[in-house]
Amino acid sequence: MVNVLFVCLGNICRSPMAEAVFRNEVKEAGLDHLIYTDSAGTGNWHIGKRPHEGTLEILDKNQVDHTKITARQVGEKDLTDFDYIIAMDASNLGNLNRLKGSNKSGEIFRLLDFVPEAITEDVPDPYFTGNFNEVYEMVEKGCANLLTYIRKNENI
Score class of each variant (00 low, 15 high):
34 L>F: 15
53 E>G: 08
72 R>A: 04
35 I>Y: 07
29 A>C: 08
47 I>G: 01
121 E>K: 07
104 K>D: 09
120 T>F: 13
44 N>I: 08
55 T>A: 09
96 L>Q: 14
121 E>S: 07
90 A>R: 14
85 I>V: 15
116 P>Y: 11
26 V>H: 06
86 I>Q: 08
119 I>F: 00
121 E>C: 01
85 I>P: 12
71 A>C: 03
25 E>T: 12
107 E>I: 04
77 K>D: 10
44 N>T: 15
103 N>G: 10
97 N>D: 13
37 T>R: 00
109 F>Q: 02
108 I>R: 07
49 K>H: 13
60 D>Y: 09
40 A>P: 05
112 L>R: 06
84 Y>S: 03
38 D>I: 00
61 K>Q: 15
114 F>S: 01
96 L>N: 14
100 K>L: 09
49 K>T: 14
79 L>Q: 10
42 T>K: 03
29 A>E: 11
42 T>A: 05
94 G>Y: 06
71 A>D: 07
80 T>D: 11
45 W>P: 01
95 N>T: 11
99 L>Q: 04
72 R>P: 03
105 S>F: 14
100 K>H: 11
98 R>H: 12
93 L>R: 14
85 I>Q: 13
48 G>T: 01
68 K>E: 06
43 G>L: 05
70 T>Q: 08
30 G>T: 10
56 L>K: 15
103 N>D: 13
114 F>T: 03
27 K>V: 04
